[in-house]
Each structure stands twice: as C-alpha cells, then as structure tokens.
Amino acid sequence: MTLLTVNDLWVRFPTRQGVFDAVRGISFELGQERLGIVGESGSGKSMTGRSILQLIRKPGVVQAAEISFQGRNLMELSERDMRSVRGNEISMVMQDPKFSLNPVMTIGAQLMEAYLQHNRDSRQNARNKCIEMLEAVSLRDPERVMDAYPHEMSGGMGQRIMIAMMLIPDPKILIADEPTSALDVSVQRQVLSIMDRLVRDRGMGLIFISHDLNLVAEFCDRVLIMYAGRIVESCPASKLREAKHPYTRGLLNALPRLDNPRTHLEVLQRQDDWTHAALEETQ
C-alpha cells in the first residue's frame, strides 16, 4: 500500500546570485517500509524530508506536481490543515534531541501535552499512556523520567523520549532526520532497534535520512541516494554494496574499512554529468 507519493518535488531558495535549487525535481513513493535517503551535506536530503511537512523556512519555496498522502495532496492544504497532518499523521524526529525539547518543562509535562492535544482524555489516563510510551522505547524507570528535565537526560535517552513523543499520536509516517548522528555508536544501535521495532509493529512508513551508508544499508528496506538535489540511484538496501552509480560506489570506497587496509583511501572524483543524470532504475 502506498502511503506517500512525491512527484516532481523542487525546493528553491532565491539568493542575490540567482535561484538556488536545493532539491531538483525528485519523485518517489513510500509504502509501509523503511526508506533510507542518503547523501552528503548539501545533497538536499534534509530539505526533502522537511518539504514533505512544508517545514522549509522562508525565503525557501516548495514546488511539486504532487505530494499526496492517503489520497490528499499536501500541496493544496491550508496551513491549518497542514498543522493537523504534522504530528497527527506524519511525525518528524530531528538530529539533536537537546534542541527539540523545552528545557524548562519536565519531560512528563511535554509528553502529556502532546498526548492531550491529540486525544480527549483525563490527565491520569494521559499520564499512564505516556509512561507506557516511555516503556515502549525501553527507558528504564519511566516514572522518574516523567518528572525529570531534559538536561538530566543523556543524548540517547533524549532521542528515545523524542521518538516516544512523536509516536504518541500514532502517525502513519515517521520522518527521521539523522536521528542518531549526535549519539555514540553503541547508543546508536539501541535507538535504531527501538525505532525499528515500533515502526514494524505499527505498520508505519519510515523515511530515514542519513549520511551514513552502512547504517542505512543495515537498517532500511530501500535506499535512495541523493546528489546535488537529485536522486541518482535507488536500490534495495541489501543490494547497496552492488550499487552501480559511480557516486554511490565512490562513497562506499571512500570509507576506511577494517578488513581492507590501504595506505590511501579512494577519493571521490565528482563528475558534472551526475548533476544532470536521470534516475537509474536498478530495482
């Protein structure tokens, strides 16, 4: 079942030197799957995630033939309707939990506020529900976490709380923008496996945006590789190692590997025609 269809999406920023196209006419579909979007900084991967929720800051402009979510074209919704889509039906987890939580409110208060915004329920039920959510993201001692302030949490705990908060309204799609890059490697895996389990159990669609090829290969079902605002390659994650596009190959080879010592790493030779290349089908 297709949850989200994006057709010919452009994100443009007018500058003094002319219009800068951050995303240049990309199209893709998302089903009940884990879709990875990989690329380097400036490739437009984050802009793609944000533009789905119309979170591009001024003076940026989003243009698309279609961004349809369950038959509704999000491009045609008013700001008010869009607000109910955000959070209720499509949620987003950002890179650094420190900047996403209000530092002067307890975590419990923030979670309950999020819950009560979407559900008519008593405060006691809301509290129980939130504790359940915190248990679902494998936080030990959720009662204590409810009364704690964000600065008392470590990065990994903070990110789990963010995931819990995003999942409270039971969204259909979760967009995760580099959700683990601010975390240590060992914590990364824990957070990812929690996210993975929740997404599977609820039959959600996940858009996982990352710069880390290995992580995406391991964690997603399907991968889009972006370069300079375009999708240069799309393939099943399990076949990422056999990717054909020279850019993807270059990225893979540029990583130092424990099992393959070399004096010099391969350096990516960028070619101009990549920026014009159409999507190569490798599925």
Binding site: P256, T263, V267, L268
Partner: peptide, 14 residues
C-alpha cells in the same frame, strides 16, 4: 566532514 571529504583529508594527513 562528509565521507568523501574525510577520505581526502585522511589521505592528506597520511
């Protein structure tokens, strides 16, 4: 840094 840039800087340091 991005991985492709990381490779360049590591090579330079080598």
């Amino acid at each position: 840094l991005d991985v492709s840039v990381q490779a360049e800087i590591l090579n330079l340091l080598t």
